[in-house]
Amino acid sequence: MTAPDPSPDFLHATRASYDTMAPAYVDFTRGELVAKPLERGLLTAFAELVARDGGGLPLADVGCGTGRVTGYLHGLGLGLDVFGIDLAPQMLAEARKDHPGLRFEEGSMLGLALPDASLGGLLAWYSTIHVPDEELPRAFAEFHRVLAPGGYVQLGFQVGDDPLRLTEAWGMEISLVFHRRRPERVAELLRDAGLEVVSRVWRERETDGPFPERAPQGFVLARRPIVSGGCEYGNTSTAD
């Protein structure tokens, strides 16, 4: 197990921003998964793979926020031990209030307080979007470390080349940077971290409905290769 390092500046800004807007964020995102069947399908497929191949190990929702996706995965009834990790105490307070039967812990994806190879699955659903490019390999190395061989990681993020910077939300002062990335670049970094890319999905942005979007959406599924004879191996092909 590795101890978390001192937090980089972006972690402090991200934590403070989400603590500030936690109650408003709950109201804003309520019902979002109901309105997004494609995302529900991807999350369900990910959970089924973890249930099948994860060796009965837990599934961590890293950057769980208010726990809405953590609760969705638990509610699938697959018997998974699902828990959430987030930077922001106020977001975690909302998660515990809405999902009192689930476990939520404070932590950072740059230094997860989890033993090596202890997870059957790891979800980073729109949580790596606040990690700067230079820190992303560090996060992916942590994902590789905590996943057991054969365990899966599912990412969701906005697609693009230029970051979005927000200093205000719902009349509150915040400081957030949303890093948009290309799925092929995310896949390359996952491979560099020793993870095997299983699939990449790209969805165009929705401009109408209750949750209009500023950018297309990307989803990458990867897996820690299975160990055989002291070496990790797996299928190195990708599906687009």
Rank of each mutant, 00 (worst) to 15 (best):
T128R: 05
A139H: 01
Q158Y: 09
L176S: 08
V146T: 03
R30L: 11
L164F: 10
D86W: 01
H144A: 14
E106D: 08
T207N: 11
Y152G: 08
R185T: 13
G230L: 02
G56R: 06
T238K: 08
P58Q: 05
A16C: 10
A3I: 09
L221S: 09
L59V: 15
I129W: 01
A95E: 02
R52L: 14
F143R: 01
Q158G: 13
P132W: 04
R181M: 03
A141H: 06
R214W: 10
Y25P: 09
H74T: 15
H144P: 11
W125I: 07
R68Q: 11
A148W: 07
L49I: 10
Q90T: 15
G55Q: 02
L176G: 02
L59K: 09
H12K: 13
P216V: 06
L102E: 01
H99W: 07
L78S: 08
S118D: 00
D9R: 12
G31N: 02
L92C: 02
V177R: 09
G54S: 05
A47G: 03
A16V: 11
D81R: 09
M1W: 02
A141P: 11
L49R: 15
E106K: 06
H12M: 09
A124K: 08
G65C: 07
G151D: 06
R68M: 13
C64H: 04
P115A: 03
D9T: 14
H144M: 10
L78Y: 04
P210W: 02
A148I: 03
L110I: 05
M1P: 11
G111A: 04
Q158C: 11
E48K: 15
T167N: 15
L119G: 00
L43D: 01
A16N: 12
A16E: 12
E173N: 13
V201K: 03
T167H: 14
K36V: 11
D161Q: 12
A222E: 03
S199I: 06
L59A: 07
L43W: 03
P100H: 02
A95K: 06
E48L: 15
P210K: 06
K97V: 09
H130G: 07
G55T: 04
V153A: 14
L78P: 06
P212R: 01
L136V: 09
P149V: 00
L110S: 01
D240P: 15
R52Y: 10
M109Y: 02
L80V: 07
G150Q: 00
R68N: 13
F83K: 07
R138G: 11
K97D: 13
F143V: 12
E213A: 09
D86V: 00
P4Y: 04
P212W: 03
S228R: 12
V177N: 07
A3P: 02
D161H: 11
A22G: 08
D86P: 03
R138A: 15
Q90G: 15
T238C: 14
T14C: 11
G160F: 05
P8M: 05
D86A: 02
P58H: 00
S7G: 12
